[in-house]
Design a protein around this nucleic acid. Sequence first.
DNA 1: ATAGATGCAAACTCTTTGCAGGTCG
DNA 2: CGACCTGCAAAGAGTTTGCATCTAT
Lengths: 158, 158
Amino acid sequence: MLARQEGLDTLRARGLRLTRPRRLILDVVRATDAHPTAALVYQRVRRRLPRVSLATVYRNLRVLASEGFLAERADTGGLRFDGNTGPHDHFTCLVCGRIYDVPAGTGPGGRRRVAARTGFEVLDHRTEYYGRCGACRRRGRSPVKGQRRRTHGRSQGH
Amino acid sequence: MLARQEGLDTLRARGLRLTRPRRLILDVVRATDAHPTAALVYQRVRRRLPRVSLATVYRNLRVLASEGFLAERADTGGLRFDGNTGPHDHFTCLVCGRIYDVPAGTGPGGRRRVAARTGFEVLDHRTEYYGRCGACRRRGRSPVKGQRRRTHGRSQGH
DNA sequence: ATAGATGCAAACTCTTTGCAGGTCG
DNA sequence: CGACCTGCAAAGAGTTTGCATCTAT
């Protein structure tokens, strides 16, 4: 998947270059909805650019996130990156740890309500759902209490 | 939240002891709404129990979270703990990074909607708001771009 | 008495940084 | 050509674990 042209222009306009590692990193994140960790991105980018370093992956993920091309989220076990920068919510399966995108549900009502109650300026909001995904439910797997999320588990959504 | 807040006798019923460090750690987290990191809890517990170790703080925060006495959340810069295990949402100020509790706004409607659309079993949900808090707004401070966004990841033990 | 908890230090994982050399525009 | 970027290695930050000792029940 190629980055949108306006994305490339924006990078250049900010004095940022579109190097091969950078383009590949962006493509890899955008090509999946598995909210990959840096390690997974590294693993995939390496298939096409074996000499790339993990540091470069981290540096670029940060740059791309701060330029708005990716969303970054802190999670148990490390950072995760999301190529979908449009409005959407997440569903995290407490059994397998997979994170699914779900269409944004909460409208601007919640934001207005919070603003009215607190006097704060609400610029963004996000809802996270937790539960058991269809696959885990079918297999009869239950959420394990105190379970730690696997960080370098098998790739998701490949 | 899934876990109810029971009396501390629940601990004993599970074969867990109510030691001095453990009690202090729980008290410290419950005494603030600042969603403290492990390091901050350690700092405070140490005022009353100087020989406590950071490892003990971590171990107990994990135990207490997995027993439902605390909620744990992943955040940029590390884990944070929340003594408020009742249903509530969060507002994160993008300027000062402070996390405020706000009353839960989204009812069960969103959960039903997600369940209906995905076929998943939705057990919990949480909404995070981002913006500028009253204090930062008054001071005219604006969110700095490129600043590390404190995003919400999955929390455990809720 | 004894399973569980603690303190200490070392180990581990994830992420960032310094630097010499390479590359994009 | 010059600013930006890269790979490598080493450092940093946060968290967990091994083990001998201690303590709540």
